[in-house]
């Protein structure tokens, strides 16, 4: 079952980029941080869309892996991917980007991880899909591609060209 089609996805990404610019004109004092591994596919595209609107050097972009900040090490081992934040976030607005906001635990870990790099003045959150009814922590997005209003028994699978040959979001039966 399709949640966001291949035709819809580019418009949503463009809209998210515009909403970010509307809130933070020219990305003044703001930086973009994509969450590894799967949020980066989205942040790459949003950054590309932002660079069409403002000059490339105004877009400060990094990637953050939150594996070492998770709260479930005794249950499951996750493998870390590269963190690449070659700039200071001290006093900046950090716009976190991830693909699906589900329980909120990943973002909780990301907030923790960010503090290891400095003290941002503000952190804001942009997600492609917000599974609102499944939240386990008081965390909400500021920019949302698509909000799911009802509790869903399905798994939200975001597919990207790099991995799956297609850009879309589908609902899958949990195996």
């Amino acid at each position: 079952m399709t949640l966001i089609s291949e035709q819809q996805l580019p418009s949503i990404i463009k809209r998210l980029a515009h909403q970010i610019l509307e809130t933070y004109p020219g990305l003044q004092n703001a930086v973009i941080v994509g969450l590894q591994p799967r949020g980066v596919y989205l942040s790459d595209r949003i950054v590309a869309a932002l660079q069409k609107e403002i000059s490339a050097d105004q877009v400060v972009y990094g990637k953050l892996d939150i594996t070492f900040y998770r709260d479930d090490i005794r249950h499951q081992l996750h493998l870390a991917t590269q963190t690449d934040l070659p700039f200071s976030i001290e006093g900046k607005t950090v716009i976190l980007i991830d693909d699906v906001l589900f329980t909120g635990r990943t973002i909780r870990a990301a907030l923790d991880a960010l503090l290891s790099f400095g003290r941002p003045s503000k952190v804001s959150l942009c997600v492609l899909v917000d599974r609102k009814p499944s939240r386990e922590l008081p965390i909400q997005p500021d920019f949302t591609g698509k909000e799911m209003v009802d509790e869903s028994p399905y798994k939200v699978k975001v597919r990207w060209h790099e991995n799956d040959g297609v850009d879309d979001v589908i609902l899958q039966v949990v195996s």
Partner: peptide, 26 residues
């Protein structure tokens, strides 16, 4: 696996705050 995970931890050790909460309660 150990060597590639060590690469990620080496990056952690370059951060302003070098401590991660990974093994809390261990």
């Amino acid at each position: 696996l150990i060597l590639s995970t060590a690469t990620q931890f080496k990056e952690v050790l370059q951060r302003p705050v070098k401590k991660v909460p990974t093994l809390r309660d261990i």
